[in-house]
Design a protein around this nucleic acid. Structure first.
Lengths: 145, 145
DNA sequence: ACCTTAATTGAGAATAATTTTCAATTTCAA
DNA sequence: TTGAAATTGAAAATTATTCTCAATTAAGGT
């Protein structure tokens, strides 16, 4: 079973328990294709008669984040958005300021440069995030009219 | 007078008024060398018997942000930090996850690559922000001990 | 299967940052 | 100088998140 696998691979942290809320949240995270925040999880589970308290959702998100099961996509607008990590290696995002569309991309040259810059400053890079904000193809076309 | 110049250059938005609170905030922003948040402005002005309500500070920050007088440095930890734009061209930041130190840097190669990536996706880049998180020189040394 | 206990949960209160409301004040153009 | 429109301060409201604590549950040993 995939779910148990994830718990074993990522969360085997001594005294952690595989609880119903955690499994439900993990299932949601695993199967959803979108970026999500705490409310998305809360609402989706509630709609499916699987209600879990927001407190537990926040606690579980913090746990998953610490263990690398999920990562933060953006924290702008003071609301944290996450994404599932498994089978979804690091990448960056372009965010359309008109329609909110998020385009994922990965560029090895940029990553390489980042490492170089950090070396220059004797800075030990742990993680980074880069957001390019602007207009997506569609919104640019619309705006021109 | 520099202050008036800024109001004319950036904020000449039809019906905007040059008010005492706005001038005080602009002066603080202009002369401070650090990155600042709403509280920094509030406390600094209060210490100098120039108290302005937090509400007005938030309103003014939003106004300055929209008009390009300031820009957001980081929004992580759900508190927005800003910096003055004038005479301070775009750059990116390394943020120490231990002591919070912010190191500014600029790398033209990275900027160039970003443009390239955007072209590839037909994305019209308006602005970007990049945060590299990790350990600064000092904190790395300390941690090794 | 049953017990024990430490981990976890839900509900709601608490907190932090920011935004809104609204009556009173201030700016600025005529 | 005046008056309309913009802005302000104070406090209430909102949003996102965290904390508190009593009640519940998972997991290992019997």
């Amino acid at each position: 079973m995939e779910i148990k696998e994830i718990f074993n691979n990522y969360l085997k942290n001594g005294t952690l328990k595989i609880t119903t809320p955690r499994v439900k949240i993990l299932k949601f995270i695993k199967f959803t294709k979108e970026h999500f925040d705490a409310d998305d999880i809360y609402n989706n589970l509630k709609e499916n008669q699987q209600k879990i308290s927001l407190a537990s959702i926040y606690r579980t998100l913090a746990l998953f984040l610490k263990n690398g099961v999920i990562r933060i996509v953006t924290h702008a607008g003071r609301k944290a958005k996450y994404e599932f990590v498994k089978d979804n290696p690091h990448h960056d995002h372009m965010i359309c300021i008109k329609c909110g569309k998020i385009i994922e991309f990965k560029n090895d040259d940029i990553e390489y440069m980042q490492k170089k810059v950090c070396e220059k400053y004797n800075f030990i890079l742990k993680e980074h995030n880069m957001e390019l904000r602007g207009l997506c193809k569609n919104c640019y076309k619309k705006r021109k009219k």
